[in-house]
């Protein structure tokens, strides 16, 4: 199936790219690796007048780590580069694990961090060809008036299905956003709206240009657990990211993030309150797992049942916390 028509712009500098985006306004879309945008174009989900290909912008690449200032990742850094980075593996384990589970090796060679943080939301009723969507009835998010997942409501429940966002949230990451007005920074947790229709706080003339992870979280133990039907290629159906700091067996700090069950990746802040200052116990882990399944709200957005995805959240929370907390190495 061919793609709809569009103009292709290939700016070489970030300031030029944001001006191009401003020129075309809502009729422009950003493309980098293309692994999310191109299949969605093919499915008829978007019809932009201009596609702004940012791959050629050299200043958006690279991984830099400084023990004082932390980690800086350019938005065009590929998921392969993050997963294989010795700096990320050593200091920010949860991110290396999450990046290493995205899609398949070949897709990770193309897909970028910026793209993974700005993914389109996914739903059984949305990520389908025009023919499929027409035959089954268009949905609220595209061309229709009813959400087939929750027909009584007025919200779209398409699911946030990225892997790296939840991991980066457990690491207190900040994002940098460029626009014709300059640069601004925002905690990653504030970037997501938890609305399937309108997922991120990114203006039409803005580009997510980079990610910063603070130095004080370097060395946290980390684990990312992901549910999918096949162990490669598939998007997550549920995911749990944990970063934890231990001192003599006592949990000094812990953050737990969820993905692929709500319209946004979410931190379960209660887990930190429950576990900080404690020694490992199965009861403490169970209490945290309970908090996790109170936050995760899978609905019938995929062919897997919401019950199974919810159960797996509990399993993943237990598994990750136990693995990180009750052993010396953490892995």
């Amino acid at each position: 199936m061919s793609l709809p028509p569009f103009m292709l712009l290939r700016p070489r500098r970030l300031d030029e790219a944001v001006v191009r985006l401003a020129d075309y306004g809502p009729e422009a879309m950003i493309v980098a690796g293309g692994t999310d945008v191109v299949p969605n174009l093919r499915a008829g989900l978007f019809s932009p007048r201009a596609l702004v290909d940012i791959k050629g912008i050299g200043e958006l690449g690279g991984i830099r780590f400084d023990p004082r200032s932390g980690l800086e990742l350019g938005a065009l850094t590929t998921l392969t580069a993050i997963a294989e980075s010795s700096v990320v593996q050593e200091h920010y384990r949860v991110l290396a694990e999450a990046a290493g589970t995205v899609a398949s090796p070949v897709l990770r060679n193309m897909g970028t961090l910026g793209g993974n943080l700005c993914l389109e939301t996914r739903c059984l009723w949305y990520n389908q060809s025009t023919v499929w969507r027409k035959a089954c009835g268009f949905c609220l998010k595209k061309d229709g008036t009813v959400c087939h997942v929750a027909p009584g409501g007025e919200r779209c429940w398409a699911v946030w299905s990225g892997d790296t966002a939840a991991a980066l949230m457990t690491l207190d990451a900040e994002i940098e956003i460029a626009s014709p007005r300059g640069r601004r920074r925002m905690p990653l947790t504030e970037f997501y709206k938890n609305d399937g229709m309108d997922r991120i706080r990114l203006g039409r003339d803005e580009i997510l240009s980079g990610v910063r992870v603070p130095a004080r979280l370097a060395g946290y133990r980390g684990s990312y657990q992901k549910l999918r039907i096949r162990s490669a290629i598939d998007y997550p159906l549920a995911g749990v990211a944990v970063a934890m700091q231990l001192e003599n067996g006592i949990c000094r700090d812990v953050r737990l993030g969820l993905t692929a069950v709500n319209p946004a990746p979410l931190l379960v802040r209660e887990v930190g309150e429950l576990l900080r200052g404690q020694r490992f116990s199965p009861e403490a882990v169970e209490a945290a797992a309970h908090a996790v399944i109170r936050t995760g709200k899978p609905l019938k957005t995929s062919v897997s049942t919401p019950e199974y995805r919810r159960d797996m959240l509990r399993v993943f929370a237990r598994r990750a916390l136990t693995r990180l907390w009750s052993s010396n190495g953490g892995h």
Partner: peptide
């Protein structure tokens, strides 16, 4: 035709990529 199967893989500067999601002009 959905970037899931790998049959269209080519190497770009030695790196495997899926030509079914690559815009030729890019």
């Amino acid at each position: 035709d959905d970037s899931s199967c790998g049959c269209c893989t080519v190497l770009a500067d030695g790196v495997p990529m899926l030509s079914c999601v690559m815009l030729a002009a890019s």
